[in-house]
Structures are given as C-alpha cells and as structure tokens.
C-alpha cells in the first residue's frame, strides 16, 4: 500500500516552517496532515509553507486539508503558502481546483524565497 512511503517533515528554515509532504496524500494520509497543521496553528512560529515538491499523488482530501488550514490561518492573520512544481501531479490538481486563487502557489522553494524577499523589500 501507499502508507509506507508517506511521511511528513516539519523543518524550520529561512524564517519559515516547511511542512514537507513525501509520498501520496490521500484519504488515508490527509488526517496526518491535518494533525501537523493543528500543531502549527497551536504555536506561534514563523509563516508556514506546504511543500508538495516530493508529493507523488494528491487527491481532493489532501486539497481539503490544505484549504481548511489556509482559511483558518488566514482568519488568524498568519500567512500560508504552497510550493508545487509545474507539471507535477499535485500541481495539476491544485490548478484544476483553483486553489492558487485562495492560497499563494509557488513553483519551487527558491521561487518562493525570491518572491517573498521581493515582497519584503517592497
């Protein structure tokens, strides 16, 4: 099955908390992402980035977990961003569902940092 490959890492780097998703994000694994998000909301750490570059599959339950987290964080005034490579399975789903309209979507971690720095200096 798919659960062996699934893993979540939370890394604090470059002034952000990166929630890095490995493997397949689906009905079985999305609850674990929900838990990781709940932990992020309960502390007052730096801005959260959901990094999907290593996510090999994402279905709508994964999207829902991310969207719910994004809207809760937005209500608390805490910025959230997503990183997903163009052409990747998760990016296709995110684009189809129009998630980028609600949560800033970046092509890579480097692009996010570059865009973020420009926004900071602006």
């Amino acid at each position: 099955m798919t659960d062996e490959e699934f893993r979540l890492d939370v890394v604090v780097r470059d002034g952000r908390q990166w929630v890095v998703v490995h493997g397949e994000l689906d009905l079985a694994t999305a609850p674990l992402l929900d838990e990781a998000f709940a932990d992020r909301l309960s502390d007052t750490g730096p801005p959260v980035v959901v990094d999907l570059e290593r996510c090999t599959f994402m279905d709508s339950s994964g999207v829902r977990a991310i969207v719910r987290f994004g809207s809760r964080a937005a209500r608390e005034g805490r910025p959230v961003a997503i990183v997903a490579a163009p052409g990747s399975p998760s990016r296709f789903t995110l684009d189809l569902l129009g998630v980028g309209d609600a949560i800033p979507l970046h092509d890579s971690a480097e692009r996010l940092l570059a865009d973020g720095d420009r926004a900071d200096s602006a």
Partner: peptide, 11 residues
C-alpha cells in the same frame, strides 16, 4: 472559463 472549486471563498 476556469473557476475554482466551490467552498474556496474567493472571487
């Protein structure tokens, strides 16, 4: 025309 999923609360 592309439109986001229902429930996203966006324009």
């Amino acid at each position: 025309p592309r439109a986001p999923v229902l429930g996203l609360s966006v324009e």
